[in-house]
Structure formats: structure tokens, C-alpha cells
Nucleic acid binder design. Structure first.
Length: 298
DNA sequence: CTCCAGGAGATAT
DNA sequence: ATATCTCCTGGA
């Protein structure tokens, strides 16, 4: 087998897009996406992963600029466009942050200062749905493994790897075959969701045309999609920054840092809306999540 | 060995 | 509404 390792030259993504190493790592390996692996080559850290059909390597230049190279024969301009969308470079992050109570909230300020430039990535919602159907009761390495197996078994093969499987393909898969991908009881969720999606034409298109509440209700009709998973899908795949996934880390943080009675989900959601607002609550969640996993105090 | 992790769903109160 | 139990798997 011939392995033509055909990589483009390294290029700057955007001269204004600079990040610290720990922030880029958090973005690519912190639980938003599960398609990137850190690579340590000759003391230079980089990350290899994929976005749709593109296979990409990212690293930081001396001046902290994010640089990339890509595999295969794609035009660099297309990869740039894809990466700009992925990192949401054209979103007004500064303005979003300004809607958060950073100045009145020392804790949130500390979180934000620990991960400057942290943002919400933009991923295909149909991929994010599969991702977070796999996520329940699982840690990042296990979720990664499940997705890798699912892609290898049901995804389209490309010259460099496997793409995310289509929901059409998953709808024709047997539960047992999905379970072989170490998905466990989630295999039923994936299978069941695939059945619903394949019988509802335009399922994902309708989500894009819906408001947050409507889209959430639609998603929660799918087996395996509860409140937390729905909020993840809407935040990472739907671009709804008001979404605020309540996982165990965040619940612990809200309880210990703000004294919220997190046993009471309604009170908790009320606090979130009052304190963080609806414009960028999801971004606040991301800062807090990254911070707490980093400091491991709770 | 036991425990439980970045949950959802069913059941019982 | 709220609490408790079970559901696969793998790592501590």
C-alpha cells in the first residue's frame, strides 16, 4: 500500500486569530468536538483532526497565530472558509462577552481570564447529534472511541479516514451492529433516533428554521435526547448561545460558586437566565466548564 | 474487587 | 414534581 502523505504547506488562518496553547487544546479536545488528537512531534505540539471531508492539522506559530495545513487536493481557500466557520471567526465574540456579568462576577471573570479566546465551535448539527447521543455516562476518550468505531463501520471512506455516517445509513443499521461500536445501551438511542429522522423529511432543516424552544422540543422527541444532550446539540451544532448544558461539572460549580440549589432544576435554570442572560449563557458555561476541569477544586 | 463517570428513561411515590 | 433504579463500558 502506497501512503502518499500529501500535505499542503503551513498557512496562517487569520493574522488576528491568536490563541494560547491551552486554549486551543481546550477547544479541540475539551468536549465540544471529539475529532482531534494532539500530536507531539519534535517538541512542537499540533492537533490533527477533521472537519467534514477535510483532514487538517493545526498548530500555533511563534506569534501565537493559529496556522494550518491540510491533507489532499482541496483548494486552500476552501479549507480556510471551513476553518473560519468552524472557529466562528466572524462572530462578534467581544460583544457577546460584554453581555455577560464579567465585571460584577469575580468568579466568572477568573474563568474567562484563564481561557482567553475560548469560544463555541461550529459543527454540523447532524454530527453533533450523534456525538452527544454517545456522550451519556462517558468520558471524552470513550466518546472518541465510540465515534471512531461508528465512523469506520458506517461512515464513508475517504483517502485519509472515515467520515461521520449519515443518518440515512444509520437508519438502515442493525442495533446489534451499532452496539458493536461499544455504544452499549446508547445503541438503542442511535437506532431509534435514526428511525425518527429517516421518517421525518427535513428534520435538520426544520431545526434551523426553529427558535430555541421549538428546536429543543423537536430534539427531545428523539430517544436518548434529554435536557442536557439537547442543550449540547443546540449550543455546539445549532449556534444557540443561550443553551446551557447542565452536566455534573457545571452543576457542581453552580452549587459551590454561586450557592445555587442545583437539586432544583427550575431554580437552577432561573438563576442562569437571571445571572448570565440569554445572549451568551452558553459561552459562560464554556468558560466555567473549562475552568473547573482545569483547577479541579470541587 | 467495587465504584462511578460530562445522562436518559421508566417507575414509584 | 421529585427520588430512585437501571442501562453498557472501561478506567481508577
Amino acid at each position: 500500500m502506497e501512503t502518499m502523505d500529501h500535505w499542503s504547506v503551513w498557512q496562517i488562518l487569520d493574522p488576528k486569530f491568536k490563541l494560547e496553547e491551552k486554549v486551543l487544546h481546550e477547544l479541540l479536545c475539551g468536549g465540544q468536538t471529539f475529532l482531534w488528537d494532539p500530536i507531539l512531534d519534535s517538541e512542537q505540539l499540533s492537533w490533527k483532526g477533521s472537519i467534514r471531508e477535510f483532514w487538517i492539522e493545526l498548530k500555533l506559530a511563534q506569534d501565537s497565530c493559529v496556522v494550518f495545513r491540510h491533507h489532499g487536493s482541496h483548494a486552500s481557500a476552501n479549507v480556510v472558509q471551513e476553518l473560519r466557520a468552524f472557529f466562528r471567526l466572524d462572530d462578534a465574540w467581544e460583544r457577546l462577552i460584554n453581555t455577560l456579568p464579567i465585571e460584577q462576577d469575580d468568579y466568572l471573570k477568573r474563568c474567562a481570564e484563564r481561557f482567553p479566546g475560548l469560544r463555541i465551535l461550529n459543527q454540523p448539527i447532524e454530527e453533533v447529534l450523534l456525538t452527544f447521543l454517545c456522550s451519556s455516562n462517558k468520558r471524552i476518550p470513550q466518546i472518541k472511541q465510540m465515534l471512531q468505531l461508528l465512523r469506520a463501520k458506517f461512515g464513508k471512506k475517504t483517502s485519509f479516514g472515515y467520515r461521520y455516517p449519515s443518518w440515512d445509513r444509520l437508519s438502515k443499521a442493525k442495533v446489534e451492529d451499532i452496539a458493536e461500536c461499544k455504544t452499549g445501551y446508547r445503541a438503542r438511542y442511535i437506532h431509534g433516533s435514526a428511525q425518527v429522522i429517516s421518517t421525518q423529511a427535513g428534520f435538520f432543516e426544520d431545526l434551523n428554521d426553529s427558535c430555541f424552544e421549538e428546536a429543543k422540543a423537536q430534539l427531545m422527541q428523539l430517544p436518548g435526547v434529554g435536557d442536557k444532550v439537547a442543550e449540547c446539540i443546540l449550543l455546539y451544532g445549532g449556534g444557540f448561545y443561550e443553551a446551557f448544558p447542565l452536566d455534573t461539572w457545571i452543576l457542581k460549580a453552580l452549587h459551590h460558586r454561586y450557592g445555587v440549589d442545583t437539586k432544583n432544576i427550575k431554580k437552577t435554570k432561573g438563576f442562569i437566565e437571571r445571572h448570565f442572560g440569554l445572549k451568551a449563557a452558553g459561552l459562560a458555561q464554556q468558560y466555567i466548564f473549562a475552568y473547573e476541569r482545569d483547577v479541579k477544586e470541587l
